[in-house]
Design a protein around this nucleic acid. Structure first.
Length: 499
RNA sequence: CGGGCUGUGGCGCAGAUGGCUAGCGCGCGCGGCUGGGGGCCGUGAGGUCGCAGGUUCAAGUCCUGUCAGCCCGACCA
């Protein structure tokens, strides 16, 4: 018999490195199963399972981006410093976290024998490793766009970017991260605005239907708006500890960059006009959001729609005589599920106990586990276990495919429902500053009236560490007065502590 | 950049007031028993104690310097 290792032991291991509720997802679940620290400060090695999740996200998002008329393209990783200088706000936003290339050659130091930069190989113009690609892309766009017939220009790029953050955290804020960034150009302000909203909608679909993460959609306050944008839309999600995470952003850039990079076109009336632009992005940060939304004490919990493996099959072969039969049955089941479009994995590794396999796949968050052994074959059933609620049932073989699909669907819905209930239950309305303070302290999203000034926002941030996450689209447009200044306010905004 | 902390096999750690050949758990190799929740027994491999100086008969332990990492802030997808 296998000795039984208690689940508490597992839990202890998981929570060991921190008593902080949010922390163990990051430190243990993420790094153990999905990624680890790289030799480079603040960067991550994303392990196969973590990358497979990213590939699923890429796959679904890329499909939606293309369905909305965009094409993929690719632009350089290096940006001449002078490009950065062109948009004043933009430089200010990114200057303090830029990685800069100064040389193009190394040489061996004659005395120490170590490599150093060759002083003769200094670049005349330094290059910035892109923190985002607005400038390098728009410099190109200026040449691509001549006429209103060239518009709209709808392009997306899958890329890595580098931001030399002072402080990094796995997935949530790494020095290098992977993302997609969309960059579109329109003939009219309305066209750009429509695009900005449309892409936020695409992100919302991805988050809700695939990642099972609900969020509050809204507009950023001026102080939180992207450097160089007219305004920024965001999806603010709530993690299990009540802290907010900005899952993605969609910016209406107005004509700011068009004017800096001279993106002009001739309109139908033969007039020269500056173009209207948008940019929008979603990064590997959402993997962090995914983890912190659904994980439990046993590890990750992946929503079926995004899980790289939806069903793991574990053959149980206690004796040699049955082994062949068990394996043949399990292989048949796998083929059957695959034919139904279910993403499966057969774990037929020998000399690893079933219990160890259960634990391993549970930690990786695979939604459904199927156990097949001689006992099941005798009954013409299999054991089907669901990850999120730990339910375990015998299912008749002939009903398996339907049953599995049903469980996957139920689990997908259940995860979103649970997360949505959490969001609703932890969102409160504050009618005075004291209530806001208490709410924020207790990990709530706090709706409160705000006078619209940066000063008030700053005061609240300094005193409570809470920021305005967004001005919700569907917030009631009830007039009120600011809980700090008493000045009139058009609607309530969301305050919360954020990652 | 401020404040706090930590550097000892792959990972997590223990090594009071200096003292024998530097230990433990997990993991890893091999053999066997096992096999429906992270199994057991046996037996192995694996360490310049972050780095550089210094004190001492003797340094993982004390002193000085230095480097790296983590956490808490400020900044941010």
């Amino acid at each position: 018999m296998f000795a039984k290792k208690k689940k508490e032991v597992v839990k202890k291991t998981l929570t060991k490195r921190s008593e902080n509720y949010s922390q163990w997802y990051l430190d243990v679940v993420e790094t153990a199963e999905l990624a680890e620290n790289s030799p480079v400060r603040g960067c991550m090695v994303i392990k196969p399972h973590g990358y497979a999740i990213w590939e699923r996200i890429q796959h679904e998002l890329d499909r939606m981006i293309k369905e909305t008329g965009h094409s993929n393209a690719y632009f350089p990783v290096f940006i001449p410093k002078s490009f950065f200088d062109k948009e004043a706000e933009h430089v200010e936003g990114f200057a303090k976290e830029s990685a800069v290339v100064t040389h193009y050659r190394l040489q061996q130091d004659a005395t120490t024998g170590k490599l150093r930069t060759d002083p003769d190989a200094k670049l005349t113009e330094e290059l910035i490793v892109r923190p985002t690609s607005e400038t390098v892309i728009y410099d190109t766009y200026a040449r691509w766009i001549q006429s209103y017939r060239d518009l709209p220009l709808l392009i997306n790029q899958w890329a890595n970017v580098v931001r030399w953050e002072m402080r990094t955290r796995p997935f949530l804020r790494t020095a290098e991260f992977l993302w997609q960034e969309g960059h579109t150009v329109h003939a009219t302000q309305e066209g750009a605005e429509e695009e900005t909203k449309k892409m936020l909608g695409v992100y919302q679909t991805l988050l809700e239907d695939y990642l099972a993460i609900p969020s509050i959609a809204g507009k950023k306050s001026p102080s939180e708006t992207f450097a160089g944008a007219d305004h920024t839309y965001t999806l603010e999600s709530m993690m299990q500890d009540g802290k907010a995470l900005q899952s993605c952003t969609s910016h209406n850039l107005g004509q700011n960059f068009a004017k800096s990079f001279n993106i002009q076109f001739t309109d139908e009336n033969e007039k020269q006009q500056y173009a209207w632009q948008t940019s929008w992005g979603l990064s590997t940060r959402v993997i962090g959001a995914l983890i912190m939304s659904h994980s439990d004490d046993l590890g990750l919990v992946l929503p079926p729609n995004i899980a790289p493996i939806q069903v793991v099959l574990i053959p149980i072969t206690p004796n040699k005589e049955d082994e062949e039969e068990v394996l043949s049955v399990v292989t048949k089941i796998e083929e059957q599920l695959k034919a139904q479009g279910v993403r499966t994995h057969l774990d037929s590794r020998a000399h690893i106990s079933p219990g160890a396999k259960f634990g391993e796949w549970e930690k990786k968050g695979i939604p459904v586990r199927i156990e097949i052994g001689p006992k099941d074959i005798a009954k013409n059933t299999v054991v089907v276990a669901r990850r999120d609620n730990q339910n375990k049932h015998d299912i008749l073989l002939e009903q398996l495919a339907d049953s599995v699909k049903e469980i996957l669907q139920e689990m997908q819905v259940a995860l979103l429902t649970t997360a949505r209930e959490r969001l609703t239950q932890h969102t409160i309305v504050a009618t005075n500053y004291q209530e806001l303070k208490e709410g924020v302290e207790n990990g709530k999203f706090v709706l409160a009236h705000w006078d619209g000034t940066a000063k008030t926002e700053e005061k609240i941030k300094a005193e409570t560490k809470a920021t305005i996450r967004c001005i919700p689209f569907d917030g009631e447009k009830d007039k009120g007065s600011c809980i700090i200044s008493g000045k009139p306010s058009k609607q309530q905004v969301v305050f919360a502590k954020a990652y």
